[in-house]
Computed example of a mutant assay.
Amino acid sequence: MATHEGQWKAGTPCWVDLNVPDVPTATAFYSAVLGWSFVDTGAEFGNYQIAQVDGRAAAGIGPIMQEGQPSFWTLYLASDDADATAKLVTDNGGSLIAGPMDIPGSGRMVIATDTAGAVFGVWQTLGMNGAEVVNEPGGLVWEDARLTDPETARAFYAAVFGYTYDAVDGAPEDYTTFALDGEIKGGMGGLMGAPDGTPSHWIAYFGAADVDAAVAQVQANGGSVMMAPQNTPFGRMGIVADPFGAPFCLHGEVTG
Rank of each mutant, 00 (worst) to 15 (best):
M101H: 06
A159S: 14
P233L: 08
G186Y: 15
V254L: 04
P24M: 07
A145C: 10
V110E: 02
Q230M: 14
C249D: 04
A228H: 08
A131C: 09
I50T: 01
A220Q: 13
F120H: 07
V39Q: 09
A112D: 10
D81N: 15
G62M: 13
G93T: 07
G252W: 00
F120N: 04
L147K: 03
G235M: 06
D81W: 06
V240S: 02
D91E: 15
D144A: 04
A220T: 08
A112V: 12
A26H: 01
D83I: 11
A78S: 15
V33T: 03
T255G: 12
G130K: 02
K87W: 03
R154D: 02
G186T: 13
A98C: 04
G42P: 08
P104C: 14
V23I: 15
V141Q: 00
Q7L: 05
F234R: 01
F29L: 05
R236S: 04
Q52K: 12
G256N: 09
R236T: 06
G93Q: 10
G105P: 11
P137K: 00
F120P: 00
Y163C: 01
P21D: 05
E44S: 07
A32N: 13
I203C: 10
T12H: 12
V119D: 09
V254Y: 00
P100C: 14
S79V: 07
T90S: 08
K87M: 04
Q69V: 01
T85I: 07
V160I: 11
